[in-house]
């Protein structure tokens, strides 16, 4: 028995390291593909110039601005909605057992809706029915619908992993629920929230099909959030699939996207760390 356990332990160590190395290698493979094809065009002017010749030359300044605007709108709408729902699902289960189950099922189904369906829906609802037209606003709102399940699920998981002892202790000290939430639970659940934001941003920034029908294809510098604006992944898609000779700029844009992601993730981790600075646990 003892030996048997010892072997399992060793096997797991090997398994874990092999997996980690394999995954890293795989990702290094993809990354090196992007790097080797994208690095030669990357320069400062690429970032501050607007696209020319359907994107074959010039840069991606307007695309970056549109992407940021879309992301901001998406997060401004999705964060309060997602956070509120997650708190309800995780903290008020006793009051809302059936309600919670319905909402949770609802969200799990929403997570599996194909992005192209989101796109067609966003087009019909935001662009036409609500009259926003092809705009960064419609795009951001469509994306907000799309990242909701991710945000809610991971934030909820964050809250659920908090041991009940904290809740009892807080209740014992006479703290109200809202107070407990902000002072006790939030710092502990912060990693879940951070992961939700990171995954949500990742999903939003990587989205092509949903945005093609809502925020649109225009690569001009947007004047307001009501203008149509091309997001970075649509730019990559168009350059690689529709524009003959657009490949090298597609790779460079993909490289910029990777760098952008690194920066966003780094900042969000940093902010969460600051935010949960008074972490009660350790």
């Amino acid at each position: 028995m003892e030996i048997h356990r010892n072997i399992t332990d060793k096997l797991l160590v090997v398994g874990v390291w092999v997996t980690a190395i394999a995954v890293t290698c795989l990702f290094a493979w993809i990354l090196s593909d992007i790097l080797s094809n994208g690095l030669k065009n990357l320069s400062w002017t690429f970032l501050i110039e607007s696209p020319h010749d359907a994107g074959r030359s010039g840069g991606i300044a307007s695309v970056l601005v549109s992407t940021c605007l879309i992301l901001i709108i998406c997060l401004v709408v999705a964060l309060p909605l997602g956070f509120g729902t997650a708190v309800l699902l995780a903290e008020y289960t006793s009051e809302d057992k059936l309600f919670g189950r319905i909402i949770r099922c609802n969200l799990d189904v929403l997570a599996g809706v194909p992005s192209i369906v989101f796109g067609l829906f966003g087009n019909a609802f935001f662009c036409i029915y609500l009259g926003m037209g092809f705009s960064i606003l419609s795009g951001g709102l469509t994306l907000a619908c799309m990242v909701l399940p991710i945000l809610i699920r991971s934030t909820e998981a964050g809250f659920r992993s908090v041991s009940d002892d904290y809740r009892r202790a807080a209740a014992g000290l006479g703290m109200g629920r809202a107070r407990t939430l902000v002072y006790i639970l939030l710092p502990v659940a912060a990693p879940g929230l951070a992961v939700g934001i990171v995954l949500g941003i990742g999903r939003a920034i990587a989205e092509t099909a949903a945005l093609l029908f809502t925020s649109g294809y225009v690569d001009r510098m947007p004047g307001s959030v009501l203008d149509s604006g091309r997001s970075i992944s649509i730019h990559i898609y168009d350059l690689s699939m529709n524009v003959p000779g657009g490949e090298s700029n597609a790779y460079t844009t993909a490289l910029v996207l990777v760098i952008l992601l690194v920066v966003i993730n780094w900042t969000s981790t940093w902010v969460t760390n600051r935010f949960s600075g008074g972490n009660l646990l350790y």
Partner: peptide
């Protein structure tokens, strides 16, 4: 690394 790869567009 994993966080970055969560955000790579499916086109890539």
């Amino acid at each position: 690394i994993i966080e970055v790869f969560a955000g790579i567009p499916s086109v890539v």
